[in-house]
């Protein structure tokens, strides 16, 4: 009886462990400095997985260890978040103390340097957040809550956050949203992350306008963000959604530079969580067009 129970529980855990193994692999890529520590854990996980798939002399103790291991790995991202954010906060606030004159007056030249440092702290913060949200999405730690949303209202709300930025760059935002659209079943926070990512990318490259188009048929909704910038060279298209594959941007200031993880995060959110599809197209001199489709039937709660 105990053996059977152990086997059943063990089998249930195998896919979990496989995900974990994969996530650890990714963590090694994004935190190279942690490799030596992680590698040991990684091997332990593989060992445990093999033990579980072919249970030798099953012991509940061993299963407890597996669970502890799993919990530890999942907590890793949260601990990493705290450990990375603490120093960032200190640097950020200290720079702000300089900039706002709390520590005495600064020359124009000094102010410029402080500002450059601030932008790069922002960049590092964004990178940290992207790495952590990717790690959460990959090891299943992200909390997903799907809700029915009025499509047009949701889209307009997200896009409205970009109006000021667009205006400053003299870029027109065009929305082509039909009056009647079906409801969308989405995780609002995650989907906002996707749209924001596509919008800020488009704003980085657009020359005069960005067109957001929505269409729907009986099964799915199609949303696309199309800028009128230089477009993307064909050879780059297949790799765009991989981590750190972002094209090197020429002399953008750090404040608006991409982290290189945004599209990888979008792909995870659209394809793995919402069961949709995301892709990019580029026509010569016609700018870049990023589109995603979402099934109308909610797939979140599998």
């Amino acid at each position: 009886m105990a053996n059977l129970k152990y086997k059943n529980i063990g089998q249930k855990m195998v896919p979990e462990l496989e995900t974990l193994e994969e996530a650890l692999g990714h963590l090694e890529t994004v935190f190279p400095e942690a490799i030596s520590v992680k590698r040991k854990d990684h091997q332990n996980v593989i060992k445990l997985k093999n033990n579980i798939s072919t249970p030798p002399k099953p012991k509940i103790e061993r299963l407890k260890n597996v669970i502890t291991q799993l919990k530890l790995q999942k907590e890793f991202v949260d601990v990493a978040a705290h450990e990375l954010k603490a120093p960032l906060t200190i640097i950020k606030l200290s720079l702000e103390n300089f900039k706002t004159g709390v520590l005495g007056p600064l020359s124009e030249k000094q102010k410029k340097v402080i500002e450059r440092m601030e932008w790069n702290v922002i960049r590092l913060t964004r990178l940290t957040e992207d790495i952590l949200s990717l790690a959460r999405l990959e090891n299943g730690r992200a909390k997903i809550r799907c809700l029915q949303q009025e499509t047009a209202k949701f889209l307009k709300n997200v896009i409205s956050h970009f109006e000021d930025w667009a205006e400053r760059q003299h870029i027109r935002l065009e929305l082509k949203i039909p009056k009647k659209l079906p409801l969308l079943c989405i995780d609002v926070d995650l989907m906002e992350q996707v749209l924001s990512n596509l919008m800020s990318n488009a704003l980085r490259y657009a020359k005069t306008k960005i067109i957001v188009t929505v269409t729907a048929n009986a099964h799915e909704m199609l949303i696309s963000v199309h800028d009128d910038g230089e477009g993307i060279q064909e050879e780059h298209l297949p790799n765009l959604f991989q981590k750190f594959s972002a094209l090197k941007e020429s002399s953008q200031n750090a404040k608006h530079q991409s982290t290189g993880l945004g599209l990888a995060i979008c792909k995870k959110i659209i394809e793995d969580i919402h069961g949709g599809k995301i892709w990019a197209e580029s026509l010569k001199k016609m700018g870049a067009k990023f589109s995603f489709s979402l099934p109308l039937q909610c797939l979140c709660e599998k």
Binding site: I90, L93, E96, T100, L103
Partner: peptide, 15 residues
């Protein structure tokens, strides 16, 4: 527990 963080916040709040 981070003395540096307390110090950074203290500076601003005292100001």
């Amino acid at each position: 527990d981070e003395a540096d963080l307390r110090e950074a916040i203290k500076m601003k709040l005292e100001a």
